[in-house]
Each structure stands twice: as structure tokens, then as C-alpha cells.
Design a protein around this nucleic acid. Structure first.
Lengths: 215, 215
DNA sequence: ATATAACTAGGGGAAACCCCTAAAATATGA
DNA sequence: TCATATTTTAGGGGTTTCCCCTAGTTATAT
């Protein structure tokens, strides 16, 4: 028996889901919460398998609820439900550990499927949401690609030095590892600063990591 | 008219695609390449809109071809085609700028749709591929989530200092910005090094970025 | 063949790092 | 609520690293 709690501030919506799930004989709705704080409180005295969580909740929003819930009860599977197919929402709540994300216009067949999938520990996204995530992913790739193309001209030796810097080695250690003088390493560092337009080591590391210049 | 080139080392497959595309009166196959080097050579004397690119090509694999092609001809839209729904393949070729990825068992209707979608500059993935990418994404999220939980105890002030360090500000500048003494900032830096288990600024920045400790 | 870039290296000064102490302000917990 | 812990503040003083400048030698490419 899959124990389910529903968290949504619209009574009719909660009732609707509940009536759908009542027809499933391996599912049981054991809790209803109408705001975020209620969820936290409810879980203190109840065990559930799945939390159907609206992203826009009063008092404490779904993203926060998701984070807090999983921090205390990592075995709860969270299926996010939202009116909005917004990339920022989707991305945030997934980062907090939600396993799935479906929209409120999802039909009963898909809802059941989503719950069953999530219950096995797998992720589930409705196809509109999938599209949204993929678009976001593509944007990121394009961004980091552009950036990457901007700083290509780092020599082999400089790359070695850069890698060792990022691994927290001091200039002296790098000199030892590469069998060159300390002053030579310092010289490479200067070239790196100039080429990468960095003011100091911090910038060097940040730019190198942002642009994925290693590998 | 959409000008298309096909790059695949299996003649029958190339012929198959071509016969499908012949029936479309807004598409024209203008080139056939049977290995990677041929593609590069072909593009020197021909202009195309879309390159249907097999990931596993002789002489030069699809990933490399993709990179080289887009470096010279950024307007070419690349639709990757592969036997394998392997996350590493998909991820790599998308990073190199391919717009879409479909499998070789794709039917003609979907192939046409994919080409038309990619031709407008949008991305297209068959649903199996989408699933693969999403799984990869989820794995990554779980990883970075674990890491994040490991270093939580950085105070508000320390976070401010850390952020300014990463923005390449010197200790003196940070002191000025926060209206505190240089020695205080040094003190915060020391605490940061200790808390984050870093040996120096480079490590500080790397760890902070890896674990996304800002925001 | 001759620039251009890469690798090497040193001098000098500034900045960061490291050890310490220490007081006031806040948070936390029992 | 009161004691304890953490955070934020700040300094002294010495060591190391970093950064800038110059400069010679070797690859690399056009």
C-alpha cells in the first residue's frame, strides 16, 4: 500500500486528487495539507511514501518544504505539482531533491503512472515539463560553449600549471613536480593571469572552472 | 529548399534516408559522406543547411566532425543520428553544438519532423534520447546535492567575504567594501580556509564553486 | 627565414598566509 | 534565563606566496 499525502492550498484540487486515488486499491491518501508549515508538522507524527507537493504553497513554498522534508525524511518521494511550467520552478525543486514534476492539467491515468514510477525511486516528468527542462539545458550548453571559445589559447605547460594551482598546490610544489624553477612557475602564472584576464589566483580558478578549461 | 548532407558509413542507411527525403519536395540531399574527413572536405566547396551526422564514423568520429564543422560553419544545423542511446555520446555531441539527436530506428515521419524542427534552429530529441538525457541530469543533481550538504556551516559574513574573493577582489578592497579592517578580513579568510579544508585561495574558490556555496 | 609564441628564470615589492591573542556582539541550548 | 559557543571584530609579527617587470633561449608556424 502506497501512503500518500497531498499538499495544496486549493481544497477542490485536493478533493479531486483524493477521489482519483480512492479508486486505486494500492494507494491510500493519509494526509491533506493546505500550507507548507502543515506539511512539516504532519510528518512529525505520520509516515508516508509519497508527497504530492504543490510548488506554490502559502506560508512556506514548495521548494522550501521539499528541502526541509528530505533533510529529515530522505525516504519520502516527492512528486511536485504545479500550474506553471516555469523552468526556474522546475529546476529549483529538482535541485532540492524532488523526484518528479507534473502539471495540474495532468489526467488521472498519467497521475497514477507518475505516482507509481516515483514510488519505485525513479523520476517522472510530464512531457511538457521534459521539454522545458531540455530547453533550459540547451541554453546552458550554448552559454558555456560561447564562453569556452573565448579563451582557447593556453599553452600545454600553462595548462599543467593551471591544473596544479586548482588542485591547491603552491608555486613551490608545482616547481618541484614539473622540475622547473620556482621563478618559471611564477612566470607561467603571470601569463595565465594575462591571458585569462584575471586579477589574481581567485579569478584564475573561477574562470578556469567556469569555462571548463581543463580536461 | 532545405539542403541536406548525410554522413554515415553504411551505404544502405544513407540510401534509405535519401529515398525518404526525395519524397519531400522542400528537401534536397546535396551530399553523401562515408567518413568524417569526407565531411570536412565536402563542406569546403558546398553549402548546406542541415548535416545528418552519424556519431560513429570512421577516420574521424561524429563528435570531432561536429566540433570542426561548427567552428567553421556555425550556421550549419547538425542532427546527430546513432544506433546507441548512450548518455556519454548524447551529452558529448550536444556539448559540441549539435541541435538534435535521434536514433537509427526512427521512422520516416519522425525523421522529417526532426529535420524541420532543427532547420528552424530549435532542438529535437526522440523520446528515448530525452529520457536518457534526463536520467543523466538527475544523476548530476544528486551528486551536487550530496556535496552541498557537506560544508554548510559558513557564517553570513564569511559568505560575503567569500563572494568578494571569488569576484577577484583583494583583501584590502573587501575591507573597504564591508567597512571593516584589513585584519578582520584576513581573519575571515583564515576561518574560511579552515572550515572549507582548503590550503589556499585557489582551493577556496574551487570548493566554493564546486559546492555552489554562494547564492 | 623570420616573426610569434612558449618556456625558462631572476629581482623587487606587495599581498596573502599563518601563528598568536582578544574583546564585544549574537546565538544557542539546557 | 544564564552559561556556553559562535560570530564578528581587530591587531602583532614573521613567512611564504603572489604579482609585475625584464630578458634570454628554444620551438612553431607561416
Amino acid at each position: 500500500m502506497i501512503k500518500i499525502a497531498i499538499a495544496d492550498d486549493h481544497t477542490m484540487f485536493v478533493d479531486g486528487i483524493e477521489s482519483i486515488l480512492q479508486k486505486e486499491d494500492d494507494m491510500e491518501v493519509v494526509g491533506r495539507c493546505f500550507d507548507g508549515e502543515e506539511v512539516i508538522h504532519f510528518l512529525k507524527s505520520n509516515t508516508i511514501d509519497i508527497l504530492l507537493l504543490d510548488v506554490n504553497l502559502p506560508k512556506m513554498n514548495g521548494i522550501e518544504v521539499c528541502e526541509k522534508t528530505l533533510a529529515k525524511y530522505p525516504n519520502v518521494k516527492i512528486l511536485a505539482i504545479s500550474m506553471f511550467n516555469e523552468e526556474s520552478y522546475v529546476s529549483e525543486i529538482l535541485n532540492k531533491g524532488a523526484l518528479g514534476y507534473i502539471l495540474k492539467n495532468t489526467g488521472r491515468v498519467e497521475l497514477i503512472k507518475a505516482i507509481k514510477t516515483v514510488n519505485t525511486g525513479k523520476s517522472y516528468f510530464s512531457k511538457e515539463v521534459t521539454q522545458t527542462i531540455m530547453n533550459g539545458l540547451l541554453k546552458q550548453r550554448k552559454k558555456s560553449q560561447n564562453k569556452k571559445a573565448f579563451y582557447p589559447k593556453i599553452s600545454k605547460r600553462e595548462k599543467e600549471v593551471l591544473a596544479l594551482i586548482i588542485q591547491e598546490h603552491t608555486t613551490q610544489e608545482i616547481a618541484g613536480k614539473l622540475f622547473i624553477s620556482l621563478k618559471t612557475v611564477e612566470s607561467h602564472r603571470s601569463s595565465l593571469l594575462a591571458k585569462m584576464n584575471a586579477r589574481n589566483t581567485a579569478g584564475l580558478v573561477r574562470i578556469a572552472l567556469e569555462h571548463k578549461m581543463l580536461e
